[in-house]
Simulated scan of single mutants.
Amino acid sequence: MPIRLPANISSRQIPVVAGALLTLATAGAFAEGYPKAVQQLEDRGAEIVGEFDAPGGMKGYVGEMQGRPMSAFLTADGKHVIIGTLLAEDGTNISQEQVEKLLMEPRFAEAWSKLEDSDWVGDGSDEAEVVLYTFTDPNCPYCYRFREMADPWIESGKVQLRHILVGILKEDSAPKAATILAADDPESALRQHHENYEDGGIEVDRSVVSQTYNDVMANGELMSSLGLQATPSTFYRNAEGKIAMKPGVPNPKDLETMMGGPRP
């Protein structure tokens, strides 16, 4: 997650740390397990998932605090820990690189199999070279916009967009999602909904909602378990084959990256 630093910080300073400095004196530099200063973070609710060698003789740690990614740095004396973002003098965001490597990449790789096993609706050719999973609320205007932007790749057969339908925005979001999932041809129902989105989308069929309502709820639980709060949130493989996630409507450059190439 990008962090804006004060404009008065000079790039000539020693790698900058933006965040809170916890002065945590300890009786011994290194106890069993993590150093005592780092254990203070755990005592405050942090979950450490990995560590790395940081500049200046420091040791870096990556984890989560209150559901948010965090990085922390143990000073060379082993007695103090700094929470925040570490920048090199050339502008490299050392914290972000390590958060992505140690926290986000493993999490997204694990998430991919869960997405595959979820109740999704295919949008595009089953033979498409590129597959994306996107959490979609039937009433989400940004989901509608994203689908419009992706249309050239989908229609060309290059991309299949797999919609994991959730109901989080309006009272009829879940019933609409359940109606689509319960249709004899969910893909056609989804297209019908999209084509009529500006007129309210698909009409809820109360006679079938109960058949798939629990599936919609399960999709919502999956979304929450991945720490996502808004639609669309889209998972894809980047050029290196690693799983990445893009929240919201992508800009044109990001869209080409997600779709695996330029607009057909």
Rank of each mutant, 00 (worst) to 15 (best):
K114H: 13
V99A: 02
K170D: 11
R107I: 01
P152V: 03
R107L: 12
P141F: 02
D126K: 15
R147T: 13
L102Q: 11
E148H: 10
I168L: 11
E129H: 04
E171Y: 06
T134R: 09
F146Q: 09
W153R: 02
Y144W: 09
I168Q: 10
D117Q: 15
K101D: 11
S113Y: 03
W153I: 00
E105M: 00
L132N: 06
D126T: 14
D123V: 01
G124S: 10
G91L: 01
K158C: 04
H163K: 10
N93P: 05
D137I: 09
R147G: 02
G167K: 02
P106Y: 09
S113I: 12
R107T: 14
T134G: 08
S125K: 08
G124Q: 09
A128I: 00
W120F: 13
D126Y: 13
S95Q: 03
D126S: 13
E97G: 04
R107P: 01
M104L: 14
L132C: 05
N93S: 06
Q98V: 06
K158M: 09
N139V: 01
E148Q: 15
Y142D: 10
V130H: 07
D137G: 11
D123H: 14
T136M: 13
E89V: 02
M104C: 03
R145L: 12
G91W: 03
K158S: 11
E97S: 13
D117I: 02
W112Y: 12
M149T: 00
E116G: 01
Y144S: 05
G157L: 07
F135M: 07
V159L: 15
E110W: 07
E89L: 08
Y144I: 04
V99I: 15
K101C: 00
Q96M: 14
S95K: 12
D123T: 01
D123F: 14
L169D: 06
S113T: 15
E116Y: 08
H163C: 00
D126E: 15
